[in-house]
Write a protein that binds this DNA or RNA. Structure first.
Lengths: 231, 231
DNA sequence: GTATAATTGTGAATTCTTGAACAAATTATA
DNA sequence: TATAATTTGTTCAAGAATTCACAATTATAC
């Protein structure tokens, strides 16, 4: 019904709106939000439409109720828990960001196969041994699992997560895991992303240089056409 | 000409193919790659087509030359450098992954406003003060900038990066930065991603429970129709 | 009040991406 | 050597996401 992209944007709208609210702003118009995110106003209106919330023509949206609508739509009524598998560098960074309660959502437990990490607390989050996965997920009633591990065991760990009741997985491992159709997976592949940026950076540079060349050898299409037809 | 999605997938193909090659495999067929990534074979063939490389009907693709084609397409002929701004938890994790040479691509310098970090070396990468940005980018001929900072100064730092010659930005900050059209930006918003996964996890769970309910109250559409028409 | 200007909500058009399908090509096999 | 079987390259259709464009609606100015 609602698309992934819409959900992502709603999350962005919320962050911006919260900031604007503390700055004292009370209403906002679609093109303002659009400008902040560099998207088109129609997109903003469409997304907000899906919330069921209505703006006021010639006046915009009231921020406070709009925020309520977004929260209503995005957030679980009850606080929602996540578990992290893999307390490496990336895992630690994620804990630093999401271990403390963050909205209705927080990482509640971490797991690592390294015995020296088990038992420790990182950013307020306890690290358990891998064989406690099922138990701790049940205890914390977690629904989200975050994989911050190398690819090797990703699939089997993922299977354990799903068996334990996890229905959403945020996968930072390079392996594309397979899940049954009633589990949601988001792949975040930092290596691939890095490569992509590098690829397009190079292209942009080439493009810019071509443009520069064109500018310097100022020959408009019109002039060019003239040259051709004159022959 | 070539889409972002295609570039991303080519990067994934490469990683898989490299692995398969060390395992001794010499050829691969589109459906094999497709199965590993859970996409359709036609997509794989399409992507490979764009490389200009041709497979062999009834036999597949030869892995070694295919890998060469991908490298030819994705990689810069010269090693390409990136700089990282923000040596917080996330920045450190990125350095741990990408500071050493990684393919033709590496993070060559880091920057932080915290004086206690400046001068230190993290995962083999030196940390410079912010005001050295322009100089170090020029020296390292970097084309990619990675922003791993909070949103506040993201725009002004981004502007500096672009002025210094950066043409690709990987932005982990929550702010959607604005750049001229000849600069490529990729936003990776971990908070929004986390929220998205949480949202769909909840939905999947609901969906699964509905399905379960349907199963338990076993009434097929046919039976239902029968009941109706019998009345 | 009335007219004007501006903004929303949304159907239609457009663009981008994916999938299905099949001819052409190639290997394997009888 | 001919036949069958299989996989590629590619066209065309389908699907998804975005953008346009405009009627409906509301605030504001006069």
């Amino acid at each position: 019904m609602v698309s992934e992209k819409t959900v992502e944007r709603l999350s962005l709208y919320r962050r911006i709106l919260q900031q604007l609210r503390v700055e004292g702003k009370e209403t906002i118009m679609s093109h303002e939000l659009a400008n902040l995110l560099h998207i088109k106003p129609a997109q903003v209106r469409r997304d907000i439409m899906q919330l069921g919330y209505s703006g006021i023509p010639n006046s915009g949206y009231k921020i406070r109720p709009l925020l309520e609508s977004i929260a209503n739509f995005l957030d679980s009524p009850l606080p929602q828990s996540a578990v992290l598998v893999g307390v490496g560098h990336l895992g630690l960074a994620l804990l630093a960001n999401f271990a403390g309660r963050w909205r209705q959502l927080a990482i509640r437990a971490a797991f690592d196969k390294d015995p020296s990490k088990v038992g420790q607390t990182f950013h307020g989050c306890r690290c358990y041994p891998m064989y406690d996965l099922q138990k701790v997920i049940a205890e914390t009633k977690s629904v989200v699992g975050i994989l911050a591990i190398p690819g090797e065991n990703a699939q089997s760990i993922c299977d354990t997560l799903v068996q334990s009741g996890i229905s959403g997985i945020l996968n930072f491992s390079p392996l594309r895991i397979k899940v049954s159709e009633n589990v949601f997976v988001e792949h975040v592949d930092l290596s691939a992303t890095f490569e992509k940026v590098s690829f397009f950076a190079r292209r942009m540079k080439h493009y810019a240089e071509e443009e520069k060349w064109k500018m310097e050898n100022e020959t408009t299409d019109d002039e060019y056409e003239t040259i051709i037809t004159k022959q």
